[in-house]
Design a protein around this nucleic acid. Structure first.
Lengths: 346, 346
DNA sequence: TTGAAAGCGTTACCAA
DNA sequence: TTGGTAACGCTTTCAA
């Protein structure tokens, strides 16, 4: 009574081949300890011989897990998606899970319905949320109501009472500012962004100045939007100042690149007349001249950690305890755009 | 005999509520035409009232479809992943499918096993392959053996007898070269890459030169690797020529940016002394100064088309017929890096 | 340590 | 046009 050839083997085929019950095969596949070594070996042999792999849909229908992890994002930079995803897929593979990616519709029509629909259909074992979604109250509430474990990547301060993984933005910014200070700069401008991360970075920048007894000059702190153009505008304002800065710290690379462009247009030498540092180590940071001094976010590592937390149970939604927060180490990357101020001007 | 509260409603609950059999509910959910309008309305009402959504695992276990589309990639640029994925998730949502993303292990240990394992577990309704995987014979053979429909994105010429979607690289390159020629350039260098796309782009470049009766000078065609550094090296070689080119066409943006950097280092004005064009419209292309003239690949559109082909049955693996190939329109983006040659040199 | 049998929620075949 | 009922391939009680 062989199955029709071509059809993949099932647990029944394996059980028959190994001369055990399907339950025992199930135990072996799930690495349950209560199986005799000999039995286990026999089953594994049969599994290998038949090239058997359990089918996900059957497993998740019968059991409690879906073996699926969801990654939700909305309009992030390409580098961010790619980085996070690289880590998430890797983490999933190691855990025998699979990554389902959903990018939320542009026109946020009923975001809640979109998510509910996804949760109901997929029943993911957990969700990973990236900025700005990880700070969206509607989304967080929907997830909470569905009792789906989730981990936030770089949420704004507080983390909304949910488990999260992040890097120390303030510390990294402080290190970057310290670098500029140690090069001899005293007039260091800061271009802000419009997301939570920007505030943390600015805090680090100010901390470094104060620690070195340098004045935090409000005139040198200008707003931006994390976009290239806003960096251009900010730089234009700064260059027009009676006492322009000799160094410029942008809250992200895109704005730093905007400032760099504006400097080059105006014939301001970088790093000779002006040092520039950014944040994020975007692709472009190393593709311009001079290459940008910046900070690398450990995106892939953060996503891997998120998967781990999800599956280790660290992401259970227990009210009461403070949720776990993993802080991963960053890396300051020094390139050509930062140097000591020109002699005649410092 | 109510179900315990909190548990999501099942098809049985809906059937009871609507006073029909579960099979009828199933028919309505699957939009089968053989249901009376009144019955359909009653069922839909019950579905809405209970907020019912079919569970994927049960559907795929019982039926023939998994409602899953797989996206396989390996070490692509961030922009490429992000673009393709955006389109793929959108296409999936419209088709009621979900996108499972797998990034192949770095150390290509037994790629075949990785894929087989994924196919066996997930039984995806179709797979989307991106370069360079879509040209890997082992992978293609594995997929074919598993009878999994798949669509290749930008495969090398021939398309391996499988359905594919692409843009017209040669035509785009020809347009770009024509642009340079129309600006007055006659000595146009070409930096090659090491993937199939590079050859198509070079073909377009040569076609444009020949059409304008310009000489294709082998000395002006230098190899590269699609990496930034190889653009630097290539530019260095070209600049050292007795008669350096007045325009430079790089097979992708990264190499164009490398050339731009080298030009700036040597004090060669761009676009004044040297026009530079790239290919891909990477993020960085618009983040440098001068911004790069380049070609935008319709990545998201290509991925959407791939999903459509997969689900419309256009991607069936029929031996015999020529497989479908969808060619999507590209966009030449003219920015600051291209201009007419300086008077004294042309 | 092992197994028998009862689900899991849906689709699909065959009757009515 | 509808409905019963048997799969689908696995996990999970509960016994042995």
């Amino acid at each position: 009574m062989n199955k029709r050839a071509g059809a993949p083997p099932t647990i029944i085929d394996v059980a028959r081949q190994a001369g055990v019950s399907i339950k025992t095969v199930s135990r072996v596949m799930n690495k349950e300890p209560t199986v005799h070594a000999d039995t286990r070996a026999r089953v594994q042999e049969a599994v290998a011989a038949l090239n058997y792999r359990p089918q996900l849909s059957a497993r998740s229908l019968a059991g409690a897990k879906s073996f699926l992890i969801g990654l939700l994002y909305y309009d992030p930079s390409a580098a961010f998606v790619a980085g996070v995803q690289q880590g998430a897929t890797l983490g999933c593979r190691e855990a025998g899970r699979h990554l389902v990616v959903e990018s939320l519709q542009e026109n946020g029509v009923d975001v809640q319905a979109q998510i509910e629909s996804m949760l109901a259909a997929l029943r993911p074992d957990g969700m990973i949320l990236t900025p700005p979604l990880c700070d969206d109250p509607v989304i967080l509430e929907t997830l909470r109501a569905n009792r789906t474990p989730c981990v936030l990547i770089s949420p704004s301060d507080g983390g909304h009472g949910l488990p999260s993984v992040c890097m120390d933005d303030a510390l990294a910014a402080e290190e970057l500012a310290n670098l500029l200070i140690s090069l001899g700069h005293t007039a260091i401008a800061f271009i802000e962004g419009n997301q939570a991360a920007s505030q943390r970075r600015r805090a680090g920048y100010e901390r470094a100045l104060k620690a070195h007894r340098l004045r935090v000059d409000p005139a040198l702190i200008v707003p931006g939007t994390f976009q290239f153009e806003s960096g251009v505008d900010a730089a234009r304002k700064l260059f027009a100042l009676p006492h322009p800065p000799t160094a410029l710290f942008a809250a992200n690379d895109f704005m730093a690149l905007g400032a760099l462009t504006e400097a080059q247009r105006q014939g301001i030498a970088v790093p000779g007349d002006l040092a520039i540092v950014g944040f994020d180590d975007s692709d472009a940071a190393s593709l311009v001249w001079p290459a940008l001094t910046t900070v690398r976010q450990p995106l892939a590592e953060m996503a891997m950690a998120a998967v781990e937390m999800l599956l280790s149970g660290a992401a259970r939604i227990d009210e009461g305890d403070a949720p776990p927060v993993r802080v991963l180490p960053h890396e300051v990357i020094v390139r050509g755009s930062s140097a000591a101020p020109a002699k005649g001007r410092a």
